[in-house]
């Protein structure tokens, strides 16, 4: 019984936590691959989504209306925010040194957190309306939120893979990430492709925010920091720039986290274990699992 419970819980919770990391990691990895920048404000987009959802469901609307509306609203707000950040903070720095861009990204991250603190204060914002309950699977309690996250993750991964592999725009994204100059010579508008990348990344961050909030419905201004860093770790483990890599890295990290949390002796060290994996991977395979070594082009 105990073994079954352990295995089942690792599968369900590990995969759903991993799915959340994967969705965030995809945003990191796509933006890195195409715009060649590490968008450290990406985690804070999740926080914005979470606040949006909580504020919306806490209104007097019935939950059947407010919940779908909150998801939609969070996606719209996050997409607009993501695109605005790119246009205001990153686009003027195209061609600047990577360090300047990195510092800007960290600055944007703090800016978003500070704005959230000004608006919502430092006390956590909570809701009781998002407890979706649990059911028993083989006698083991499984939360509905985990199942929803799993479904969303699978849909996102399949949808995104199809989009990148089959659509003309998806292929153009790969082309831009491989050789921006050659892509321009084909008539591909690089700025437009970068905007599309930020739209996709921010929408996925909003979904990740929704999945996190149904798991634990309490938000503060630093809500997105830890998941953001974990997802970045996942992206690097999987091979930064690679979308399948981000998916793999995210799922892996989620499962490791879940196993570590289940074992009382090592549970306090879960975060340390996850980041140690990053260090080990970087030592053994610096490109990550699915990352490619790219020739630097002049």
């Amino acid at each position: 019984m105990e073994v079954l419970e352990f295995i089942l819980s690792v599968i369900v919770n590990g995969l759903s936590q991993g799915g959340i990391y994967a969705m965030i990691a995809i945003g990191y990895t796509m933006v890195y691959g195409i715009a060649k920048l590490l968008n450290f404000a990406h985690g804070d987009i999740i926080m914005v989504a979470a606040y949006t959802i909580i504020v919306t469901v806490n209104t007097s609307m019935p939950i059947g209306v407010s919940l779908p509306l909150s998801i939609l609203l969070s996606i719209v707000i996050c997409v607009l925010l993501g695109v605005a950040i790119e246009k205001v903070a990153y686009k003027p720095l195209r061609g600047a040194s990577p360090l300047a861009v990195l510092i800007t990204a960290i600055g944007v991250s703090y800016l978003l957190q500070s704005i959230a603190q000004i608006i919502f204060g430092t006390a956590p914002k909570m809701t009781a309306k998002l407890d979706l309950g649990a059911f028993k699977l083989f006698g083991v309690p499984v939360k509905f939120s985990a199942i929803i996250t799993l479904v969303i993750t699978v849909l996102v991964m399949v949808g995104l893979t199809m989009f990148v592999k089959k659509s003309r725009t998806g292929r153009a994204m790969v082309a831009v990430s491989e050789d921006r100059g050659a892509a321009q010579l084909m008539g591909i508008n690089v700025n437009k492709i970068i905007t599309i990348t930020f739209i996709i990344g921010s929408a996925l961050a909003a979904l990740a925010g929704f999945c996190s909030i149904i798991e634990a419905p309490s938000v503060t201004s630093t809500f997105g920091s830890m998941p953001g860093i974990k997802a970045f770790t996942a992206a690097v483990i999987g091979g930064i720039g690679s979308i399948p890599g981000a998916m793999l890295g995210g799922i892996m990290l989620g499962i490791v986290e879940c196993i570590a949390n289940k074992i009382p002796v090592i549970a306090p060290y879960t975060d340390a274990i996850e980041f140690s994996i990053l260090i080990i991977i970087l030592l053994v395979k610096p490109t990550g699992f699915l990352g490619k070594k790219r020739r630097e082009k002049v």
Partner: peptide
């Protein structure tokens, strides 16, 4: 500077 990760067909599609 062909797109190494794309297929021949997809390179022509980009063209």
């Amino acid at each position: 500077r062909i797109f190494q990760e794309l297929t021949v067909y997809e390179n022509l599609l980009m063209g």
